[in-house]
Design a protein around this nucleic acid. Structure first.
Lengths: 228, 228
DNA sequence: GATCTTATTTGTGTCGACACCTTAGTGCTG
DNA sequence: CAGCACTAAGGTGTCGACACAAATAAGATC
């Protein structure tokens, strides 16, 4: 494990506090797979590696727990969660309901400007695909971008927070552990395009249907790639 | 404010750790309204009142933040969240989707024994109602019980956790600040009864419909009582 | 040689203290 | 008298250290 606080943490809003730095460092390490699922988070070790005290480390671990990417047991420390396939599937089932609702609301609530941005994003992904048809990691980043925009545009702050703060980090971790789903990039892009179109048409019912189908398709691809 | 650690904290699994005691004390104080929404949580004050250091207090506040009942801003401390009516409504909207799904799943996943327990609970509430038709607080406790049982029986751990850990505490806080909805107790009980029956009949589609209607009715009653 | 017991070590939970920030109160200036 | 700068108080963020629990390693017994 190789942690660093300076890395790319200062991309957006640089956290001045030390706990923020530790959080960024741990979060990046987990998402990059350096801290594997199931790995134990030793407070003294992390504190020494980052040159801080244990207090900000504890704070950062708490924030990670809030996001659902680490699990903490009493007198036993924190471990990176290692989601089973069943938990992954359960997460996707709930996600289908939530994002279906999100898409339906977004079709009504999103501003014209936000809709235009969304369509531009999908178009950009399309051109990028025509150049490089296979880009698994980039695709994941794009996928997240797409869904985050819709979550932000649904007009229900509870829903937005729930998805962005809890579901998307956990999903990322799940994907990290259960890799697969090769070749779904293009199909996913087409589905994104149709969803964006439905939202642009202000057709909430269709947007929900397409989004639910989109997530069910991803779930099915996962099941197939995991051999069940 | 009058905090106490001994109270009724030792009802179920007594937390051995001090942070657990502080958490119980703060949680109880918030839910009983002693710590009003918007009130600031001063770490030194709480630490002194409970006779502990600031460390377990910080830990407890973190856990409360995880539940969504306090909000923490950097260098500014934590405050009990004061949900606006709009946030309350947004929470109910998401809850409708989640609990609708929960009821549908529970109709299939709940064991015969759990279904029997659920129906017994509803029946018990019915007899209690015939004796005392108005019992606002008790009704809220009963309402929570009913919904928790369904959440536990849906078979999707993500859904169960989301509802029990995040939504129900926040809902309790919302009800605390936006009181009203007098007289909906009996109507709510009837709706509970129908939902339980649909689950007992293993009719997931109907259970979802009834649950969504149940929550929409509560939402409408809230809107009316809050004068909009 | 395997297993139970015991000692060591690592790590978490908690404590008291200090530095910096935020805020409220006070005095000064125009 | 109003507005601003300054000071003081309170509070959070962080630190180092200690007590207790858990996991591990070593030793003794069967």
């Amino acid at each position: 494990m190789q942690l660093s606080v300076d890395g790319d943490a200062a991309k957006k809003d640089a956290p001045i506090s030390q706990s923020g730095l530790v959080y960024e460092a741990l979060s990046a390490a987990i998402m990059k797979g350096e801290l594997a699922p199931g790995a134990k988070l030793s407070e003294p070790a992390i504190a020494e590696q980052l040159g801080v005290s244990r207090a900000p480390v504890r704070e950062a671990i708490r924030r990670l727990q809030e996001r659902g990417v680490v699990h903490h047991t009493a007198n036993q420390g924190a471990r990176v969660v290692a989601p089973t396939l069943e938990q992954f599937l359960a997460l996707l089932d709930v996600r289908e309901a939530l994002e279906g609702m999100t898409s339906r609301l977004a079709a009504t609530a999103m501003s014209e400007e936000a809709v235009a941005d969304l369509r531009a994003l999908v178009a950009e992904h399309g051109t990028a695909f025509s150049e490089d048809p296979t880009g698994p990691y980039m695709q994941e980043s794009r996928d997240t971008d797409f869904h985050v925009r819709i979550a932000r545009g649904c007009g229900n702050p509870v829903l937005t927070d729930l998805l962005c703060v809890q579901f998307y980090p956990q999903l990322k971790l799940c994907r990290l552990q259960h890799r697969g789903q090769k070749g779904r990039g293009l199909a996913a892009w087409k589905e994104h395009d149709r969803i964006a179109q439905a939202i642009a048409d202000r057709d909430g019912e269709l947007a929900e249907l397409l989004m639910r189908r989109h997530i069910r398709a991803a779930r099915a691809a996962l099941l197939q790639s995991q051999g069940r």
